[in-house]
Simulated scan of single mutants.
Amino acid sequence: MELDIETLLTRYRDGRCTADERVVVERFLLDHAATSGPTLSRSARWSLDRRIRDRVQQVTGVALEVNTFKRLWQIHRLSFAAAASVILISSLVILVFREKTPSAVVFAGSQTIKAGSNQAVLTLANGKRVMLSGKSEADTIRQPGTLLTVTPAGLLTYRSPKTGVTEVLVNSVETAAGGQWQLILQDGTRVWLNSRTKISYPTVFNAKERQVKLDGEAYFEVSRDEKRPFIVTSGTQRLRVLGTHFNISAYPEDKIIKSTLLSGSVMITDTVTRADALLKPGMQAALYSGTVSVKKVEADDAIDWQRGLFVFDSAELGEVMRKLSRWYGCRIIFENTADARIRIGGSVSRSASIGKVLEKVSAVGHVRFEVRENEVKVISNN
């Protein structure tokens, strides 16, 4: 049976190739070493990325970030061999740098900064507040026409065993700095909340539409319903869909609302200026001062937070530090405000310690950090 190259690359990565198949794969890689590189799918590039990173770590002891090869491929259009060479050389430089350069993060006194976790507060329609985290087993809450279930794994679900419910009850779930949560609404729509986020919603949707209000950031997987559009309002933005997957980032301090579409289609409208835009998969709308601009993006990057990663692609340091502040619950101070405009790129796990994250930021941002209790000071590396 003849296998395509992507299947062979996957088998090669997993160590399942026969001797003959290994020869085919390695010849394929060598044949493209001097070219601009073959056109491969996302999954194939992921396979190459994984194998390169494993090899680099084996040789140098340096653990490279996920998607290292993918980003080199996109930016430089390197061949496999060229990318591998660049990564290997870079890794050796990093190794030497680490051996000769002191840490760029100084901890002054005690520090209480920890990575975020599953924690949120549910506010019922009657004003009662319920802590959702810290439960050792599933718990249930009853409201008229609705049954709520809270699990220790960070999930809140709604069920409506009764039909014909006429009383409209509006609940809300809010995460503080360092919190995240997931909920399944009455219609089956799944919502993942990032830190410092609040969502308000009816316990049972009406027959005409499904409307929620969002402040902060959330990823939605909307249950399709041709008769009832799903509407999300954030500030002056109104997003309308029938059923799709999308991410909204609407933090007031960012002064911009970003909506990224992964599947389906959505309509974005500013409720004041009436400016609007229709998004297709792989597009991101940015609403700023009543104007909507649209661009193509790597849509999956917008929800890397939901997958447990920080991913920055030429992001301003000010934006990066705001995201760290929300997740680690710390205060950020720039010694020189001009440093907030430095652009950096890279990725790191959201479960990493604040020290490890800041070391990675320092390596690419040309700044140092001083951590004292719950405060992080950004210092120019002049």
Rank of each mutant, 00 (worst) to 15 (best):
V376W: 03
S200K: 04
E26M: 02
V222L: 02
L9D: 13
R238Q: 14
Q74A: 13
E99R: 02
K377R: 15
R343L: 07
Y219Q: 04
V62W: 01
L169K: 08
K100L: 15
R55F: 05
K135S: 09
D139A: 11
Q111T: 13
T271P: 04
W181S: 06
R159V: 09
L92A: 12
E221H: 00
V96G: 12
M1V: 13
A83G: 15
A176H: 05
Y288L: 11
D14S: 01
F220A: 00
Y201M: 00
V266F: 02
S43L: 15
I113F: 05
V357M: 05
Q58S: 13
L156W: 05
I379V: 14
A363Y: 10
Q143M: 10
S79P: 12
M321I: 08
V25E: 13
V294H: 10
R129K: 12
I333L: 12
V105K: 00
A302K: 05
R129G: 03
T163Q: 10
V170S: 05
L239N: 03
G243V: 07
E319W: 05
R98Y: 13
P202E: 06
E226T: 13
G61E: 08
R11A: 11
F230E: 03
R13A: 09
N382H: 14
I52G: 01
L9P: 12
T273E: 07
E221P: 01
L239W: 01
A83L: 03
V376H: 02
I344D: 04
Q180I: 04
P252Q: 04
K323E: 14
